[in-house]
Write a protein that binds this DNA or RNA. Structure first.
Lengths: 135, 135
DNA sequence: CAGCATCCTCGCGGATACTG
DNA sequence: CAGTATCCGCGAGGATGCTG
């Protein structure tokens, strides 16, 4: 499974993989990574650097501690963040992006700025659609 | 609500908005757009151009017709796709990306290629993590 | 402080049946 | 063919309480 090269035949128009096996794997990774909380944590860590657990929760905003823990475990498992436990009392745990996590954050940056720049247009489109509907 | 300018004060390090109001709105849009099916439909339409309903379902793969309809309505409302009904029998409905939809697809392209290029590394990270755990 | 365990709810999303 | 309508299971995810 380490040799993926024969499957990396890119679609000429889009540069996306044509192999259904790889496509499925990529979709799976996308599904994991395109999670709401994952994106927000990624953003918080990108903006504010390494953070400890509770601070990270505040920066993300509106996340339960359960989801914070859960999402961070996932991200750690996927090699996106590093979890550092300081053996002190009271306990202190720091989270920071790996370099892979950082590259993902950069990739998402495009989506983020897209959302920002198209906010008004989306708002307008919704308004128009709704009015068209309820006639 | 059309005047957003005073809120668009960018964070110097990241270029991301610092205003909590805008941030909330952006997060909301992200939440909507970072949906699994939305991304896959976006991809299908980008790769294969305008598609009719049933064909689109096949290209996406594994989506129920309910979710396909629902997601397409959302995307239409947000101004991402255009729905064209041909008044013929049997009915024929075509879906195509708007230019805004296309720009979003391009923004996501970065995430997509990231997923593709980091597949193996994620796989490895998971393996290492799991072995570290079950000791 | 960081996190695990438990309970419980709510809505995502699949399956099925029916219409224009 | 392209939907709409309905039912329903299940899992995401919040709230609460307890530990090291």
């Amino acid at each position: 499974m380490t040799a993926v090269s024969p499957a990396r035949i890119a679609h000429p128009d889009t540069g996306l993989p044509a192999d259904p096996r790889v496509e499925a794997l990529v979709n799976q990774v996308i599904g994991r990574v395109a999670d709401k909380w994952t994106m927000l944590i990624l953003e918080a860590l990108t903006e504010h650097g390494p953070l400890r657990f509770s601070r990270l929760g505040k920066e993300v905003g509106g996340i339960s501690q359960k989801m914070l823990t859960q999402t961070l475990r996932q991200m750690e498992r996927d090699g996106l963040v590093i979890r550092t436990v300081h053996p002190v009392i009271p306990p202190r745990v720091d989270y920071q992006l790996t370099d892979m996590g950082l590259t993902l954050a950069e990739a998402f940056c495009g989506v983020w700025t897209w959302a920002e720049t198209h906010l008004e247009r989306i708002e307008a489109a919704r308004l128009a659609f709704d009015q068209r509907q309820q006639t």
